[in-house]
């Protein structure tokens, strides 16, 4: 019998923490990460950070240019744009993160199940996904918003989040399925089947953790898209409604009438959208490179 005598001469090599290696290997991604963290902090502590209440109207300073009092100027109602941009981050992150999360969870489940069961199930799910993909993302969201109406809970329109997450589902499902197809061939899945584990256990415990890398990347990328989509829908009047501070909303409505004499009204929310999307994209791209084992030295 093979007996164990003394410690086995094998040691785990010491490694730097994942955050540190990420910063060293992906400096651009680290910049994105810093920007995201800054945004999250700003929205969480908006009451402290913002100089004014975003809803506070000051008729003495309507369309005031950026100054020491109002760094980003004020809008047509005399509300502080800086405060509204900071509070807008709250809306953007809440809608962005939640809808991307919902979309990714559903998409991953759908895609992985499709790959695991194969044959007819796969065929049906994939044709459904095809149909969903055939609709342009904005049109699909528009239809859902129009059909569901509004359902505001805690200041956030739940139906808006659902509307934004639905176009994300088929895209994630596609990626998850292709990743899951290769995991499906691995012997450890056969071992789990040979052990007689249930289908849900195999999908949840054995397959999904192994396709998390691409899904995680999609998650960050779709946060950016969801923020953009929320801004577009708000701009079109179907998203967040006045007086809630939201970046897309700040670009639309009567602000468009004043852009010649008060360009700051649209410049700063526009910059905020670009900044957020850019940060999430930078981070997502770097995450993809970093998690790809083929690119590791």
């Amino acid at each position: 019998m093979t007996t164990v005598t003394g410690p086995i001469p094998y040691r785990i090599p010491k490694r730097r923490g994942p955050v540190l290696t990420f910063i060293v290997q992906q400096p651009l991604g680290a910049i994105g990460l810093v920007a995201i963290v800054a945004m999250v902090l700003a929205s969480v502590f908006a009451e402290v950070v913002a100089p004014y209440d975003p809803l506070e109207v000051n008729y003495a300073a309507i369309l005031a240019a950026p100054s020491a009092d109002y760094w980003f100027g004020t809008d047509a109602f005399g509300r502080d744009i800086l405060s509204r941009v900071i509070y807008g981050a709250r809306t953007a992150l809440a809608v962005g993160v939640l809808s991307s999360l919902i979309g990714c969870v559903l998409g991953t489940l759908l895609g992985t199940a499709s790959a695991y069961f194969g044959s007819t199930t796969d065929l049906v799910i994939q044709r459904f996904v095809d149909i969903m993909l055939a609709f342009p993302i904005v049109v699909l969201a528009l239809v859902v918003v129009a059909a569901l109406g509004k359902n505001v809970i805690g200041g956030i329109d739940v139906n808006l989040i659902i509307a934004i997450s639905i176009p994300i589902v088929p895209k994630v499902a596609r990626v998850a399925r292709s990743a899951a197809l290769s995991v499906r061939q691995m012997p450890y899945i056969d071992a789990a089947r040979a052990a007689g584990f249930s289908h849900s256990r195999i999908v949840m415990r054995h397959m999904i953790p192994n396709i998390m890398a691409p899904v995680l990347i999609l998650f960050t990328a779709f946060i950016a898209q969801a923020i953009l989509l929320e801004a577009s829908l708000s701009f079109l009047g179907l998203g967040v409604t006045e007086p809630t501070a939201a970046w897309g909303l700040m670009l639309s409505g009567n602000s468009a009438d004043f852009y010649e004499q008060a360009p700051w009204v649209i410049i700063f929310p526009g910059l905020a959208i670009s900044f957020a999307v850019f940060a999430f994209n930078l981070f997502g791209d770097s995450l993809r490179d970093w998690l790809d084992p083929k690119l590791k030295i």
């Binding site: 012997p187 789990a192 054995h206 953790p209 192994n210």
Partner: peptide, 10 residues
């Protein structure tokens, strides 16, 4: 294959 028969996430 001892490299692919164990779930790498467990």
């Amino acid at each position: 294959d001892p490299f692919s028969s164990l779930n790498p996430r467990m």
